[in-house]
Design a protein around this nucleic acid. Structure first.
Lengths: 215, 215, 215, 215
DNA sequence: GATGAATGAGAGTTCATTCAT
DNA sequence: TATGAATGAACTCTCATTCAT
C-alpha cells in the first residue's frame, strides 16, 4: 500500500498531505503575527486540525519552525529566480536586485530568523539544500550587478539576507501599516548604500550565512 | 518633616534604591538576551532579590519595560549629546552622526522596541520627555549634517531611530559575536545610503516616532 | 459522521465526562467546607486530576462555581418537586414546605450564594432556566400553603431562598455538628414565623431573586 | 516610667493607643466589606499606619480578628444594655428584644463569626469576659420577655446570637441595599417565630455559645 | 515605637507535550 | 491516522510575615 512513490519515504495519504500544508500555512501566519512563540494549539485550531495531528507531523516546535523556514526560503528563492529571469533582457541588474529586495519583504522572511539560532542543525539536508539554492541565486544576482559595476564590491549576500531577516521580524502588538512604510524607506536607503561606488569601507569580512552559523 | 529633598516623592531608602537599580540592570540584560518576555522571576534572581521585591518596585511587566526603555533612551541621548559636543570643532558633521550610530548600537536600543507597542501610553510624561530630548538631539545632529551638505535631505530622524531599534532587537538563542559583525556592516551600508547626494527617491513621507505611535 | 447524539454539542468522551463530574463533586465539597475561595489546585487534586484538566473544563473559577451552583439548584429543585409530589394526597401543605426546607439544608445551598454576586450574568441561559424551575416549584409550594391558610400572605419565595442561602453558608474552620443543630432550630423558628396568621407586618416589599439580582 | 496605670500592662504611649484604635476600626470595616480574608496591608493603609505597626500591635491575623470581635461584642452588648434600660418603664419586653435585634444588625456582628472558629482559645480571659457580659444581658432580655409570656420558652440566647452572626455575614461582591432589605424581613419573620405561644417544638437542646465552642 | 522594604510560600493560569479513544 | 483530553512544568502576581532603618 505504501511505497508506490519513487522517494524513500512512504507516500502520505492525500488528506495527511493536505493537513500538513494547512498546518505550515497557519504556522507561517501565526509566526508572522505573533512571533515564533505563537501557541501551537492555536496554530492547530487555525489549521482546522486537532493539536495531536500537528504533533504527528512535527514532533516538536523546532520541526515546525524548520518547515516554515523552508517554505519561506523556497518562496524567497522563487522570487530571486523570477528576478533573474526578468532581468535576462539586459536591463540594469541592480534594478533586478532592488525589485527582489522590495518584493521579498512580503514573504516576511523575518519569521525564519529563529532558524539561525544555534539549536538548529545547520547540516540538516533539507535546510542545507534550501540555503544553498537561495544563496546560489542571490550570488548570481549579486554577480550580475557587480559585473555591471552597479554594486559595491565589498557587499556579500549574507549582508542582504541578514538585513531582510532582521528587518522583517514581527513587532509584537504593532499594527503593520506604519512599520511597512518604515521598512520600505529603510531598504531603499540600504540599497542606495549598496550601490557602487562604495562610499566607505566595510569593516570585518563578508558575512555569510555559513560563518554566521559556524560561530 | 524628613524632607531635605526638594522633590515631591518621599525619598527612598538607600538599599531600596540600590535594589531598584540592580533590577533595572538585570532586566536590561535579560531583555537584550531573551527578549521582552524574559521571566521576571529570573530577572529578580539575577538581581539578587526576591521576586516580590521586583513587584514592589514595578507593579507589572510593563512598568519594568518602561523603566528599562527610559534608561536606554537616556543613555542613547547621552551619546547623541556627546557626539554633538565632540563635533563642535567644525569637523565633518556626518562623521559625528556615524560615530553616534555605531556607538548607539552598544546600548542595544532594540530592547525598547516593545515600548513602541500600543500598550504604552505615549503621553506618559517621562516617556514623552525622554523621547523629546532624544529626538531634539538627533534633529540637531541631522541638521548640522544636512547644512554641511553631507546628509541626503529626504532622510528623517525617525528613519534612524526605527533602524536602530529594529536592527538591535535581540535574536533569541543566538550568540552575539556574529550578529555584532553583521550589525556594524549593515549600519555602515545604511549610513552610506544616508549620505548626500541621494541616489534615489525615498518613498512615502518621513517617518517620525510621532506618526508611528499615532497610527 | 459520528453523531448518534441528538444535541448540538459534540459528544464528550466517556472519561472526560467522568472527570468533569468528579471535579464538580470535589468543588462542591470544597466550597461547602472552605467557601468559594477554595484553592482550585486542591480541588483538582481531590478530584484526582491534574490542575490543567480542571482549567480545560472550566476556564475560570466563575465557570466552576456556576456549574456547582447549577447542580445544587437542580438538587434543591428536585427536593421541591418531591415535596410537591408527596403532598399530593391532601395533607397539610405547610408540612410539605417544612419537609422541603429542612431537607434542602442538606444540599448546602449556601455554596451558591456567590452566584448571587454581581459578577454573574443573570441572563445566562442555564442559570436562568434553573432559577425559573426552582422558583416555579417553590411558588407552587407557597401557593398551596397559602390557599390552605397556613402560610402568612406577605411572605415570598425570595425570603425563603435567601434564608436558605445565607444560613447554609460554610463557616470556615468550624466542624459541622453544632452548626447543624443550630441550623435546624433556626429554620424551625423561621418556619413558625412564616405560619399564618402573621404576627407582624413585614417591612419593605417582597424580595425576589429577580429584584435581588437587578439591584 | 511604665506602670503608673492600675493594670498589669505597661501603659501605652498616647499615639500608640490611637494607632491601635484606628487599626481596629479599619479592620472592622474591611472585615465587613471583604470578609475575614481582607489583606492586612490594605487595613494598615486605611488606618494610616505602616504595615509593621499593625504587626507590632497584633502579632498575627487572629489577634486582630479577636480584637475586632471583642469590639463588636462590646458594642452589641452596649445595645443590649440600652434596650434593657429603655424598657425599664414596663412596656412590652418583647418589643425591647425586637428593637435590640434590628439595631444589632448594624453592628455587622457577622464579622466575628470567625471568632467562633476552633482556632480561638475560648478561655482567653478577655473573650470570656466579653461573652459572659453579652450573654448575661441577653439572658436578662430573654427572661423579661419570657416572664411577660411574650417569648416562646424553648428559645435560648444562643439561637439569637447564632442567627445574628450567620445572617450578618458579608456576602462578597454584593451591594448592600437588597441584602439589607432581605435581612430585616428575615429577622422580622424570625422574631415572629420567637413569640409565644410556640407554634412547634424546637428540636435538640438549646444552643449556647458555650456548647457551640465546646463541640 | 514606627516605618518602608524585603521575602518566600502559594494561587491562578497557560502551554508544550503525551495519552487514550 | 486523527482527535480530544490529560498533564506537569513554568510563569505572573499576591500576601502574610520578617527585617533594617
Amino acid at each position: 500500500m505504501a511505497g508506490t512513490g519513487t522517494g524513500t519515504a512512504p507516500r502520505m495519504r492525500a488528506d495527511a498531505t493536505r493537513n500538513r500544508e494547512r498546518i505550515v500555512a497557519a504556522a507561517r501566519e501565526a509566526f508572522v503575527l505573533h512571533g515564533a512563540d505563537a501557541p501551537l494549539d492555536e496554530i492547530a485550531r487555525r489549521a482546522g486540525v486537532g493539536n495531536a495531528t500537528l504533533y504527528r507531523h512535527f514532533p516538536d516546535r523546532d520541526a515546525l519552525v524548520r518547515d516554515v523556514a523552508l517554505a519561506v526560503m523556497d518562496r524567497v528563492a522563487d522570487r530571486a529566480r523570477a528576478a533573474l529571469d526578468e532581468s535576462e533582457g539586459g536591463d540594469d541588474p541592480f534594478e533586478a536586485l532592488r525589485r527582489f529586495v522590495l518584493g521579498a519583504v512580503e514573504e516576511r522572511i523575518g519569521a525564519l530568523c529563529s532558524m539561525l539560532s544555534d539549536r538548529f542543525d545547520r547540516d540538516e539536508p533539507r535546510l542545507l539544500a534550501a540555503r544553498q539554492r537561495l544563496e546560489g541565486l542571490l550570488e548570481e544576482l549579486f554577480d550580475r550587478a557587480r559585473r555591471a559595476g552597479r554594486l559595491r564590491p565589498d557587499a556579500a549576500v549574507g549582508d542582504l539576507l541578514m538585513a531582510l531577516g532582521q528587518l522583517t521580524r514581527p513587532l509584537p502588538g504593532t499594527g503593520c501599516a506604519q512599520v511597512e512604510r518604515f521598512l520600505v524607506r529603510h531598504l531603499q536607503i540600504f540599497l542606495d548604500g549598496l550601490r557602487a561606488p562604495a562610499r566607505s569601507e566595510l569593516p570585518g569580512q563578508a558575512v555569510t550565512l555559513e560563518t554566521l552559523l559556524t560561530d
